[in-house]
Amino acid sequence: MLNALKDPLKYGYAVGRIKVRETKMLGTNRLERLVNAGDFGDQKRILAETDYGSFFQEAVTPEDVEKSLGDYLTVLYEFLEEIYPEKQILFYFISRYDFHNLKVLLKAKYGEKTGEQIWSELGTLEPESIKKGIKEGELEGIVEPYRSALEEAMSRFEESKDSQQIDIILDKALYELLYMIAKKQKNKFFIDYVRSSIDIVNLKVFMRAKNLNKEQEFVEDALLERGFVSKEKLILLYPESLDIFVKELKETPYAMMVRDSVEGQKFDLDIFDRKEDDFLVRYIKIAKYIPVGLEPLISYIMAKENEVKTLRIILIGKLSGLSAQTIKERVRVQYV
């Protein structure tokens, strides 16, 4: 009852703005047109009808597309920063880019191939000072919680010389931070979203480890706390067969995703990745029926991020000559 009074006063303005913006999102129809477009030029013409248009005018190569999408997100976050009454929600999303950047830098420092991973401009960390700090091992200038996560990741790597340790430590720090941010907002929708995300990360760690026949100690170390499916349960299931694993998860919301990802005696992580995004988008759709509050604000950012992700798949897919059918298989469920 009290929230029904407080929420419109606190979030009303921001929700009003994003509710209108939601109607301008790409939506399934337009995405389908983008998938079926003849070439990138046609796609640009379709995008010109939307607020993406101005970002793609000069784009030619896949690198340009990446940059345009990055710019689009930067402008989006600037807009949200201006209207959201609760900056912590934005920090939730931006801290993920910071942790991504830390991973990229650490792996570059230790000479690991980073593949397609590139520096994201969306983080809050100052690139030059961080780069220098990490290179020289001087972390004083870096703020918490990044600093302690970096320190631990670096010392763990130097002990084990295993670059996976960097991912494990930084992921743990990231999800702990995300959980704390959500918990502070005292919003069930938000907390449950984080816990579901943690479950999904755990399931991925589990599946990858199983595929590579890693030892149990690895799983015990890498799994995250605070998910709905407890860490202990997953550890207990690790030595069991895939059938038992699928059966044990039958009562959870992840049953379908896990079942569909089983391919013989292995897990197909490509399928799981796609289902994972679909699952989370379906979850945030609950917020569509909440007229005002924190929920629409959170789900708008998630929906936009998902839209950008989908757009990246479609545009880069088209540029690299994939068929419409192949691209369509990779396209995610959309919020609108």
Binding site: L5, P8, L9, G12, Y13, A14, V15, G16, R17, I18, K19, V20, R21, I83, V292
Partner: peptide, 18 residues
């Protein structure tokens, strides 16, 4: 007052866009 503020504040957000 409370009723109008609640609806008007959100209306302001909508009007800013449309």
């Amino acid at each position: 007052c409370i009723g109008i503020t609640s609806a008007a504040k959100m209306s302001a957000g909508v009007l800013a866009e449309d």
